[in-house]
Amino acid sequence: MAWQRPTYRTVGGERVDGVWRHVWRRHQLSDEYYVDDLFVYADGAIRCEELTDLDGLRRRLAKGLIALRDPKAPPLPEQPSKWLARYSEPLTPQTFLLEVADLIEELSGRPTAAQRCHEAIRHYRQEPTELSRVALRKAYLAIPAHLRVYILGDMERQDRPLRILLTDVGEPVDGDGPVVTEEMHRDVLAFFDEYDHGVTERPRPVYADDSVDAVPPPVVLHDVIYPRGWPEELDFFVLRNNYPAEIHFAGGTHPSVHEAYWALAESHRGDDWPDVRLAVMAGLLRAKFTQHPDLAGILLATGDATISYTGHKESPYWREAGSRGGRNWIGRLLELVRSELSWPTGE
């Protein structure tokens, strides 16, 4: 059952965002269950009739006061093979608690288990060592089991590339799948390269005011990790919001666009942040590139190309998410600022 949003509660005049879903709650005077709503909030509070926390939810699940599916429903059929199964592992109270804890992290703006797994994938692609493969396995297994087959966002593959990679050579995947070989591990690396760089050129019609030049390929801004610090030679990575470029904006000084955005989000008063955040981000990007001419030059070097801002740390509202959606607002705003920088001063 999917989580629904948005919802929130007010604490001390401040809005605390949350999500909710249906559960089955046992009646106090009988063994009958009825549908009720379970709310989870960014501050760790959980409400199903009364306010509690993760430990309180754990106790209610253990006592059978809350059920995650209709107790009268027939049991789920057993899958004949874990490798061939078309569905994830069944939801259990234990994995549900992990999911709720992960939702609290997401609502609080902290990395989720899935995001940490994608980070581990990127690290493995950069350094395909046994140590990084072990770290990736740990990150993948930290995801609640009932959600694991959907991490790559492909309903057909169902995380099989990951499941192959995380199985040692000579061992069967999932215990009953194909025996893994070195070649299979190499094929997974090739898959990840296609998966991570799979943003294709966007076809578009030609209008009267379009350039007569050929449409350039998109500029894809990947969220790349530099373990030894940012390279001295500047490149397109400076266009990322987390690149350390000090900016002065709205009376404050911030070390980067990323930190400025979240500082402003936390200090904003009122419930209209979703309505004003786009204007705030536009202002921050203008400040970054007008206050740093060297970075503006790199932005202008993208020419007329579409800018695709990828990653997993930001909401899909801000980034490109390929077939999984995403509005790519940061990429679109970078194109807007680039256009403004191209316009001659005083005209």
Rank of each mutant, 00 (worst) to 15 (best):
P144G: 09
V188P: 04
V180T: 08
L131V: 14
D168S: 13
P144H: 05
P161D: 03
V100F: 00
P178S: 05
E127N: 14
I121P: 00
R133F: 14
Q94G: 01
R163S: 06
P80G: 09
L165E: 04
K72Y: 08
M184E: 10
Q158I: 11
R86Y: 09
T167A: 01
S108W: 10
L162W: 03
R125K: 14
A145W: 00
Q126G: 14
K82H: 11
P178C: 02
D102E: 11
V180N: 06
S132W: 00
A113Y: 00
A101I: 04
R122L: 12
L162G: 02
P90T: 10
V169M: 15
Q94F: 01
A135H: 12
E182V: 13
A101F: 00
E130C: 11
L162A: 04
A114L: 04
D159M: 00
E182R: 15
Q79K: 10
L152C: 08
S81M: 09
D176K: 12
R186L: 09
R133I: 08
G109H: 03
G170D: 06
T129V: 14
P75Q: 11
A135F: 01
A120D: 02
Y140S: 10
K138L: 15
T167K: 00
V188S: 01
L165N: 03
M184N: 07
S81V: 08
E130D: 10
P128W: 05
R116H: 02
M184C: 09
L98S: 08
L162T: 06
R122S: 13
D159P: 00
A113R: 02
T112A: 04
A101G: 13
V134T: 12
R116N: 04
S88F: 01
A73D: 15
L107E: 00
S88T: 06
L165A: 02
A101E: 04
D102H: 04
A142V: 06
V188C: 08
P77V: 07
